[in-house]
Design a binder for these strands. Structure first.
Length: 543
RNA sequence: GCCCCCAUAGCUCAACGGAUCAGAGCACGAGCCUUCUAAGCUUGGGAUCCAGGUUCGAUUCCUGGUGGGGGCACCA
């Protein structure tokens, strides 16, 4: 892309210039969008300010000299006080960029890639419906995966299903109790069991032969039903997983034993009080204490299962593992990092995106939620009521680190006020213009349009914004969050709406300008569709 | 007690250490539909928790407060 090339070239030139002129080891030349109020600057760097002191030079003088010495194709350089170097793209370069976008929208902004990532997220326990709290992780993971793929990386998405262990035992006991109650037997939900009405619903689905089932059989049955529901919920939310990985697969493959043996072979494991421990804490470890892998009674901990699972992901070829967790699991991060190191993998092989929890409200009242007590709002409920697009965009807009207050009532009735409609409306408006153009038999987006006609400030701002797309994607990769893309879309949409007010597109008396504007509209439409697609949001042609 | 995250406008959120308006959306006030969709545009009032420090420059980094959320298992 034109802007990518420009940034690289400008950076290289300034560095060369600095070295040639005895400016001490320059820091990286950081280029970013210039404030919109500056007439002659699209991109700028404060680099002279940073090096002026060491060079014992005036920053402004430095900026002026460097700016006049460098020359970049397609842009004009300038210097402004107190010492910025700016570049302004010329119209031809911006026009070229638009043509590049229109030539292959699905390739536009594509990066070179090179990473090989396994991205795991949601991984809710199959002991009940998917909770609305998972909406955030689902959005983050799915959108991020799409963006990383667009950046050229290999990404596999996974959902880990804990279909073994204590929780499932409790689930089985709970369902069996409800089943027995339904046929008139004395039965109690056990301590730590699940109380929700959905347990009764599952019990009611049990086949005739269930009368002879033990709790484990009910557990398997219930997991099957819940898992199918999770899959349907994720699909309903537009979230795609390449693999649903069952914990039971690990047990069948003796993967936990193998993981312990591997760690033992590496000298990372010891026995104490009849349990097997992983030496995670101390020295270069991140954790503050050692952790149990196998309990006194011989049963493995959840931690060991997780280690085996992550080992499995690596064995299947992933070079990087990224998990998305809620903040309530952040304390688990150090031991997991240590475990990956203990297995012999370099630092950075494993990382987790920790997103803060979503606090739910109904109006001003906080919603208490507990799967066990059966009080919760499901993801399905939210999506059905607030709408898929509104939900996806809303969650994508937030950085993972930000705490969120989420008013369910507001989300439901506010759907028309959700920013996503502001963006989608651009797409609908463009489509409408093209419908009208066809009606009036005006030829649209001709490849031979003379884009020099796009000289209005609103048009230029729009062209420039289109050029920043790959930078938005780059920011998403760097932050491991789709929120920069959502912000970018809001800004792009704002510029389009202004353009729409300022520049009437269809003008029979000026076909040259009409063609050029239609071409610009086509570019905006393509990019909105591509970008919203990355966020899992639809692009309606009418609203 | 220790650890992690957060604190920006009435509300929900932006702003890789940069610029002379700290941006949006919602809400509130005033305008704009005989021309391609008013889910839009124009316009007004409104904000960086407190105290220090580093820096040419701090909403951003550091230290200490204050206030909120989360976590500190041979649970998952």
């Amino acid at each position: 892309m034109i802007l990518d090339k420009l940034l690289v070239e400008l950076d290289a030139q300034l560095r060369r210039w600095a070295l040639a002129h005895g400016v001490s080891q320059p820091p990286p030349v950081v280029l970013k969008p210039a404030p919109p109020n500056l007439k002659d600057a699209d991109v700028s760097t404060p680099w002279p300010l940073a090096v002026a002191k060491a060079a014992k030079r005036s920053p402004l003088e430095l900026a002026q000299q460097a700016a006049s010495a460098a020359a970049v194709e397609g842009a004009a350089l300038s210097a402004t006080p107190p010492g910025f170097i700016n570049a302004r793209l010329d119209g031809a370069a911006l026009a070229l960029n638009l043509k590049e976008l229109l030539r292959a929208p699905s390739e536009y902004g594509k990066g070179a890639g090179g990473r090989d990532i396994n991205l795991e997220f949601v991984s809710a326990n199959p002991t009940g419906p998917v909770h609305v709290a998972s909406a955030r992780a689902a959005t983050l993971g799915d959108s991020l995966a799409r963006i990383l793929k667009r950046r050229g990386h290999a990404v596999r998405t996974e959902y880990y299903v804990n279909d073994a262990g204590r929780q499932v035992e409790n689930l089985g006991l709970s369902v069996k109790a409800r089943y027995d109650q339904a046929r008139g037997l004395e039965a109690e939900i056990p301590e730590g069991g699940y109380q929700g009405d959905y347990i009764k619903e599952i019990a009611a689905l049990a086949p005739a032969e269930a009368a002879d089932w033990d709790a484990a059989a009910f557990g398997r049955f219930a997991v099957g039903i819940n898992l199918a529901a999770h899959k349907a919920d994720m699909e309903n939310f537009g979230v795609v997983f390449d693999r649903w990985f069952l914990e039971s697969e690990l047990h069948e493959a003796k993967a936990l034993d193998k993981a312990v043996e591997k760690l033992r072979g590496l000298g990372r494991v010891y026995e104490k009080d009849g349990a097997v421990w992983l030496g995670t804490g101390g020295e270069d470890g991140e954790d503050d204490k050692d952790r149990v892998l196998v309990r006194q009674d011989g049963r493995p901990t959840y931690f060991l299962g997780d280690i085996a699972y992550h080992q499995d992901k690596l064995d299947r070829g992933a070079k990087e593992l990224i998990d998305i967790w809620g903040a309530d699991h952040h304390g688990y991060l150090p031991r997991m990092k240590d475990a990956i190191s203990a297995l012999g993998y370099p630092k950075g092989t494993f990382q987790a995106i920790i997103h803060q929890l979503v606090k739910l409200f109904r109006g001003s009242e906080a919603v208490k939620m507990s799967k066990r007590a059966g009080e919760f709002v499901t993801l399905r409920e939210l999506v059905d009521e607030a709408g898929l697009d509104a939900c996806r965009f809303f969650f994508a807009m937030r950085t993972p680190n930000a705490h969120m207050n989420f008013d369910i009532e507001l989300a439901k009735k506010q759907s028309n006020e959700n920013p996503v409609f502001y963006v989608q409306y651009v797409h609908a408006r463009v489509c409408s213009i093209f419908r009208e153009a066809a009606e009036r038999s005006i030829e649209g987006e001709a490849s031979d349009a003379d884009l020099a006609a796009l000289d209005h400030p609103s048009e230029r701002a729009l062209l420039l914004k289109l050029a920043w797309f790959s930078e938005a994607l780059r920011a998403c990769e760097k932050e491991l969050s789709p929120n920069a893309l959502a912000t970018y879309l809001m800004e792009l949409a704002g510029l389009y709406h202004k353009f729409y007010e300022n520049c009437h597109v269809l003008d029979a008396s000026n076909l040259g300008k009409t063609k050029a504007r239609l071409t610009l509209c086509a570019g905006v439409r393509s990019l909105i569709a591509e970008a919203l697609g990355l966020l899992g949001v639809s692009t309606p042609e009418r609203m």
